[in-house]
Nucleic acid binder design. Structure first.
Length: 280
DNA sequence: ATGTCGTGAAAGTCACGA
C-alpha cells in the first residue's frame, strides 16, 4: 500500500494535478491538507472517476482536510479526542474546532490527515493554540496506542515545525523570532516521537524540503522548509518499505507550495482472506 | 516591496491567512 500526504493549498485549484499525481505514482491513499473548501464544494468527480473513495472535512475557506483511498474508508473521525479549538479574541476551553484533523481506518491501518496550526507569531494567541494542539495530539496517540496495542497508526500532514536546523533553508526564518523553530515547538514535535511516533521518511530520505514559499524565488533558490511528515507507531514502522519526497511537484503550472511525501507499506496478507490484514 | 498565492465579500479591490 502506498500512502501520501500533501498540503494541496486549495483542492479546487489543483484537483487535476493532484489526481494526475495519484495515478502516475500509483498512490493508494492520499492524506490532504488545506483543501480550503466545504465538503459540498470538494471536486469529487475526478477522484471518483479514478477509483478513489473520499472522506472530506471542511468548514469554510480555511484549513480543511480530506482523505482519498482506493480501499474502503472506515471509522472516520473529524477531530481527535481532546483536540482544542480556536476563536480569535477568545480564550478558554470549548472554543469552536477547526477542520484540521481527519482520521480513518484503511486496510487495518489507522491514519490521520493533520494540519497543525501555523502559530503565526511567538506572541500570537495562535502560537499557544499550536502548542496546546500538539500536547493534545500527544495525549491522543498515547491513549490510542494503549487501547490498541500492536496496531499500526500513522500521522501524516503539515506539522508546521522544522524539527532540526537542517530543516530550515529559508533565510527569512530566524531563530528566536520566527515560529516553526522555537524550542517549545520542537519539544512539542519531539514529544510525539517520544510517544512512539517516529518519522518514517527521514531514515530513507535524509535530505530535502517539503515546502517553499511562493515569495522571493524560494523554490528556484531551494530555500525551503521540511515541515511535512509521516509519523508512525512501532507497528506502522515495521510495515514501511520505502519513502519519497516528490520535489518535482513544486514545479510546473500552479503548484502547491508543498510537495507530496510518500510512504510505501508492505502489508502482510492473510492467506485465507486477502482483504484482511494479518495484524487484525 | 511580505516583491506570491488562495479565498470570500463586496466589487471591479480589499481583508485575511499562510
Amino acid at each position: 500500500m502506498r500512502i501520501a500526504t500533501w498540503n494541496v493549498n486549495s483542492i479546487r485549484t489543483r484537483v487535476d494535478r493532484t489526481v494526475e499525481f495519484l495515478q502516475r505514482e500509483s498512490v493508494d491513499v492520499l492524506l490532504m491538507q488545506e483543501i480550503k473548501c466545504k465538503p459540498e464544494q470538494f471536486p469529487r468527480q475526478p477522484f471518483e472517476d479514478a477509483g478513489y473513495e473520499l472522506a472530506v472535512h471542511g468548514l469554510n475557506q480555511w484549513n480543511g482536510v480530506a482523505i482519498a483511498s482506493l480501499s474502503p474508508i472506515e471509522d472516520v473521525e473529524t477531530s481527535f479526542p481532546g483536540m482544542p479549538g480556536f476563536l480569535k479574541g477568545s480564550d478558554g476551553p470549548d472554543l469552536p474546532l477547526e477542520a484540521r484533523a481527519l482520521g480513518a481506518t484503511i486496510d487495518g491501518v489507522r491514519l490521520w490527515s493533520l494540519y497543525v496550526p501555523n502559530g503565526r507569531g511567538l506572541d500570537d494567541p495562535h502560537y499557544a493554540y499550536k502548542l496546546d494542539w500538539y500536547a493534545a495530539l500527544e495525549r491522543y496517540v498515547r491513549e490510542w496506542q494503549a487501547a490498541h496495542p500492536g496496531e499500526p497508526i500513522a500521522l501524516g500532514g503539515d506539522f508546521n515545525v522544522c524539527p532540526t536546523d537542517a530543516d530550515n533553508g529559508d533565510p527569512s526564518m530566524v531563530e528566536g523570532v520566527s515560529t516553526h523553530l522555537s524550542p517549545a515547538e520542537r519539544a512539542a514535535f519531539q514529544a510525539l516521537v517520544d510517544a512512539g511516533m517516529a518519522d518514517v521518511v527521514r531514515p530513507l530520505v535524509p535530505e530535502g524540503y517539503t515546502y517553499w514559499d511562493y515569495k522571493q524565488l524560494r523554490f528556484p533558490r531551494n530555500e525551503g522548509l521540511r515541515i511535512d511528515f509521516v509519523l508512525g507507531s512501532p507497528a506502522f514502522q515495521d510495515l514501511v518499505a520505502g519513502a519519497a519526497i516528490h520535489r518535482d511537484e513544486r514545479k510546473g503550472v500552479q503548484p502547491s507550495d508543498h510537495v507530496p511525501v510518500v510512504v510505501d507499506l508492505d502489508l502482510p496478507v492473510d492467506e485465507d482472506d486477502d482483504d484482511r490484514p494479518m495484524f487484525l
